[in-house]
Amino acid sequence: MPNVYPGDPWERIRQLERDVEELKALLSARQPLTAASQGWRMADMGIPSVSAGQVQIGSNGGDFYVATASGVKRIPDLSLPGVTPDYPTSFTSPATIGSAPTAANYNALRADAAMLQVCVRSIINRGASIKFWPAPPP
């Protein structure tokens, strides 16, 4: 039967052992793609195209993203639970007041403005509570 592996088989084995050791050294010096000892840390990367049935997650431009065949979603685009602000109640002030506003008209309009202020503060505080934006100053 002819030799299918030309040359000295013992030299080939020694070369394979050297190659394996070199690969081990290269792998031990390579930086990992992610680190999870204190949470996941990802380096920025380009967003690749993703085939149907696949999902790619990563960091791009400092933003976390999820890419699928149907597109890319970044953190601001993702639905975040628990942040729905209070829905404003109906206004109590009249739509029109005629030529002589009364104290009651003023008080109703003031109450409506105060109610809207509460709703805006709710939006600001709930967004800050999930780190969607910085907390407002005290």
Rank of each mutant, 00 (worst) to 15 (best):
M1T: 08
P2F: 00
P2A: 13
P6K: 04
R14W: 07
R14M: 08
Q15I: 00
E17N: 07
E17G: 02
R18D: 07
D19H: 06
D19C: 01
E21R: 14
E21T: 10
E22Y: 02
E22Q: 10
E22D: 12
L23P: 00
L23I: 08
L23D: 03
L23E: 05
A25P: 02
S28V: 11
A29E: 13
A29N: 08
R30N: 05
R30E: 12
L33N: 07
A35T: 15
A35C: 04
Q38V: 01
R41N: 05
M42Q: 11
A43W: 08
A43S: 14
M45A: 14
M45R: 15
M45D: 15
G46V: 09
I47K: 09
S51F: 12
S51N: 13
A52V: 14
G53E: 06
V55I: 15
V55A: 02
Q56L: 05
I57P: 00
G58F: 10
S59P: 02
S59A: 13
G61Y: 13
G62F: 09
Y65M: 00
Y65V: 02
A67D: 01
A67W: 12
A67Q: 10
A69T: 05
S70C: 00
S70L: 07
K73C: 02
R74L: 09
R74P: 00
I75F: 14
I75W: 11
I75A: 11
D77S: 14
L78T: 07
S79V: 12
P81L: 13
G82W: 11
V83Y: 05
Y87H: 06
P88T: 10
S90W: 06
F91E: 03
S93M: 10
S93Q: 07
T96F: 06
I97L: 04
I97R: 00
I97P: 00
A103W: 02
A103F: 03
A104Y: 01
N105Q: 07
N105D: 15
N107K: 10
A108F: 01
A113K: 08
A114H: 02
A114S: 06
V118G: 02
C119I: 12
V120H: 06
I123S: 01
I124L: 11
I124D: 02
N125P: 00
R126Q: 11
R126E: 00
R126Y: 01
G127C: 13
A128E: 03
A128M: 06
A128L: 04
S129L: 09
I130C: 06
K131G: 01
K131V: 06
F132I: 07
F132M: 08
F132Y: 13
F132C: 03
W133T: 02
W133G: 04
P134M: 09
P136I: 10
P137T: 12
P138D: 14
